[in-house]
């Protein structure tokens, strides 16, 4: 089921277009990656979902209803640029944010205690924020984002500022939130984490959505007939007779083995190639190379820049 939809959202700042007709669909209890280069319009879209700014045209639906002020308490937002009141005590501040999201004080208090215990930071309650390290502050900020149990969570670069151990902790926490039924929009430049946790993505470039779908599907779509073969035999002879049917991308000699990456050309199928190859030696492995999200990102953005039209033609 789709929990969030944007329909043809347009936003302009003076002559600059931040979003030109963006449609996204976010499924319930999934992690949705919102990707794109700097200045593509991600933050503007997130701000529109958070009702911080209003779109010039287009509509946003949350739980099937048009976005309205009451939805604020259903959304938890961790912005990329984040901050806390430095002179305020941690607990007091967390309570304040929870109450602003519409929680009762007593509920907020007990929920916060739970989270503080879970993160083993009970001792921080009466500390001033300025006494904490940046990483510690990020933890507090994370808790204030999720304490009101929002159905939709929006994390903008959540891992920045965390050390690897805490980043892992945070990742597990995000996955647990998903398993408990929360829907998460996840905006980042870190493609590795996209591959690890995202189910679906949308890629925005220069105010337009240029790509969206399931992570696995997209990777399949972006594979380009590249195979990695480990081979023991007469590679030179094979090359001489088959060179027209593939392009060699990489050759490595490892011990007595040859490791090659090739791209099949001229409609050659994998079976045809394999049939030919067995005449020149032993094949110990043969696999298709699926592009990483990193490759997909770069390829999609470069293509969009050069062709300036939709990638659906691929």
């Amino acid at each position: 089921m789709e929990i969030l939809q944007t329909k043809n959202v347009i936003k302009k700042f003076g002559k600059f277009t931040a979003l030109s007709g963006v449609n996204i669909n976010v499924e319930e209890a999934k992690i949705f990656g919102l990707l794109g280069p700097n200045g593509a319009g991600k933050t503007t879209l997130i701000r529109i979902i958070n009702q911080i700014t209003a779109p010039d045209a287009g509509e946003v639906f949350l739980f099937g209803e048009k976005l309205k002020p009451e939805h604020i308490s259903q959304i938890g937002y961790l912005p990329e640029e984040r901050g806390l009141y430095k002179k305020m005590e941690v607990g007091e501040q967390a309570l304040y944010f929870a109450q602003l999201k519409g929680m009762k004080k007593s509920d907020a208090q007990s929920e916060l205690k739970k989270w503080f215990t879970k993160f083993e930071i009970q001792g921080w309650w009466h500390k001033k924020v300025e006494e904490l390290s940046k990483g510690m502050q990020q933890k507090i900020q994370f808790i204030t984002t999720i304490v009101h149990r929002p159905k939709l969570l929006i994390f903008d670069e959540p891992f920045s500022g965390f050390d690897p151990i805490n980043a892992e902790l945070l990742k597990q926490e995000i996955l647990e939130l998903k398993n408990n039924g929360s829907t998460i929009i996840f905006s980042t430049h870190n493609m590795e984490s996209v591959e690890q946790i995202c189910d679906n993505i949308a890629l925005i470039n220069k105010s337009e959505k240029i790509l969206d779908g399931k992570v696995d599907d997209i990777k399949q779509k972006f594979k380009s007939n590249i195979f990695e073969i480990t081979f023991n035999g007469h590679f030179d002879k094979m090359n001489a007779s088959l060179s027209a049917s593939y392009e060699i991308l990489l050759v490595k000699e490892v011990k007595a083995q040859t490791n090659v990456q090739i791209r099949l050309l001229n409609g050659m199928t994998t079976n045809q190639l394999l049939n030919q190859m067995i005449n020149f030696g032993n094949i110990s492995s043969f696999k298709e190379l699926i592009p990483s999200m990193h490759d997909v990102f770069i390829k999609a953005v470069t293509l969009a820049e050069t062709k300036n039209d939709n990638l659906d033609t691929l």
Binding site: Y77, P79, G83, F97, T144
Partner: peptide, 11 residues
């Protein structure tokens, strides 16, 4: 201190 972005997602 960029607190404002968090707050105006609530008010």
């Amino acid at each position: 201190s960029r607190i404002v972005e968090v707050i105006i997602s609530s008010v």
